[in-house]
């Protein structure tokens, strides 16, 4: 894994548990989540309609789109409930010295 694709998102205390923050990098936007067992990252935009998931509800490892209630598994990106049917892309996350990094390909 090349080091240069790890992008710093922020400090680990910038996200509350069972919550997320939005992270924009170049022309892309992401959601970075803190779940009970660690940090995760997905694309920021719902695959159903172009709305950002930053205002969605995080619960039980799932993110629910605030617009039409499409639900995705945060860890796998799997679309779990209509109207979403296309999976959400996920990204590797690591924590180093209390900083969160995501690996953008």
């Amino acid at each position: 894994m090349s080091e240069e694709n790890w992008i710093e998102v922020g400090s680990t205390d910038s996200i509350e548990e069972e919550d997320l923050i939005r992270f924009d990098h170049q022309d892309k936007t992401f959601c970075v989540y803190k779940l009970t067992d660690g940090f995760y990252a997905t694309d920021g935009i719902c695959t159903h309609e172009a709305v950002h998931l930053e205002d969605g509800l995080v619960m039980d490892d799932e993110i629910e789109c605030p617009m039409h209630q499409g639900i995705f598994n945060i860890k796998s990106g799997e679309a779990l409930s209509p109207p979403a049917c296309e999976d959400l892309k996920t990204y590797p996350v690591k924590v180093d010295n209390d900083k969160i990094f995501i690996k953008i390909d």
């Binding site: 709305v51 205002d55 969605g56 605030p66 209630q69």
Partner: peptide
Amino acid sequence: VIGKVGRDIRI
């Protein structure tokens, strides 16, 4: 504005 009430309505 899109995105601003969905979470609260869901809760």
